[in-house]
């Protein structure tokens, strides 16, 4: 019986990949490699290129990581070592519970609450700092690349904090005492000994967050502005691979449109798998570094 369950599980996994590739095959066959490099997405002329969405996914993820990594690491350090014990427990549980908040609620909040702030405060301030040029040019409409990145950062924080806190707490106390006994201050101990010791695990937490940001669908679809072209500014509306699928799938009636969307899903699947495998290997190897270092 258990064997049967395992077979069903593997069939599910392989079936998922096979089904997607099968559904997307006509698009890949028709467009070839140009599908990955093409910048046009136009059902009227039957030209489909995934590059704007690949770039949009990478850009929103990059923005999210720039915000989430420093804040997440600082929070994880606080929760692992710096705050009073009781506060650590309360805030740690709060952060873990917040990981359960559904994506669609982040989207709702982002669209109806944060987007107006983004238009009236965040974007004008950033525009002012960068002289309304380059990445900070163009109309400030609230929704777009920047807002998607900000909301993604908020969404990946619980994951990043929870995992990095755990790997930070797994640093052997001998290491911490060793540094303290040399006259290191608490900050020096944390930055030069604890964080470097936990670096593989932290990298794993970051990678896992990247995987999550890649695939995040609903919230991004609600706030990024759904424009199938390369963004030229932080304030531009754009689209990610996941958001374009969510927004256009049910309306895809032109030739090759649906197959092309599924082809994007195949690319997204590959990217997510690569990132997740890397993340799992990193987080898992934490245990081993402890052994080999001893």
């Amino acid at each position: 019986m258990l064997g049967a369950a395992v077979v069903i599980f593997l069939a599910l996994l392989l079936g998922l990949a096979a089904d997607l590739v099968y559904q997307a095959a006509p698009a890949f066959a028709h467009f070839g490699f140009a599908f990955v490099t093409g910048t046009q997405w136009n059902p009227v002329t039957t030209s489909y290129g995934a590059l704007p969405f690949i770039v949009g996914t990478l850009e929103t993820t990059a923005i999210a990581m720039m915000i989430a990594i420093p804040i997440g690491l600082g929070t994880a350090l606080s929760l692992a070592y710096l705050l009073p014990k009781r506060l650590r427990l309360v805030l740690g549980t709060a952060v873990e519970l917040l990981a359960a908040v559904p994506s669609v609620i982040y989207g709702l909040w982002g669209l109806l609450v944060v987007a107006p702030w983004s238009r009236t405060i965040i974007e004008p301030v950033i525009g002012f700092i960068f002289g309304h040029s380059g990445p900070a040019s163009g109309p400030e409409i609230g929704i777009g690349l920047l807002l998607a990145g900000i909301i993604l950062a908020v969404m990946v924080l619980p994951t990043m904090v929870a995992i990095s806190r755990d790997v930070l707490m797994a640093v052997p106390s001998e290491q911490i005492e060793g540094a303290l006994a040399l006259g290191a201050t608490r900050w020096q101990t944390l930055w030069r000994v604890v964080v470097p010791h936990a670096r593989t695990g932290i990298l794993g937490a970051v990678t896992l967050s990247i995987g999550r940001a890649f695939g995040e669908t609903m919230a991004v679809a609600m706030i990024i502005g759904n424009t199938p072209s390369l963004a030229h500014s932080l304030f531009s509306p754009a689209a990610t691979m996941a958001s374009i699928i969510a927004n256009q799938f049910t309306e895809a009636v032109e030739p090759f449109e649906l197959q092309s969307l599924i082809a994007i899903a195949v690319l997204l699947l590959v990217m997510s798998l690569l990132v997740n495998v890397a993340a799992r290997l990193l987080v898992r190897s934490v245990g081993r570094t402890h052994v080999s270092a001893a």
């Binding site: 079936g15 695939g215 799938f249 899903a265 699947l269 798998l273 997740n276």
Partner: peptide, 23 residues
């Protein structure tokens, strides 16, 4: 299988949606 489950948990939910659509 443990590893596969970890990796499977990282598959974007929209991709799972397309799978359900296809099947």
């Amino acid at each position: 299988i443990r590893f596969a489950a970890d990796v499977m948990a990282g598959i974007p939910s929209i991709v799972v949606g397309i799978f359900a659509y296809g099947i």
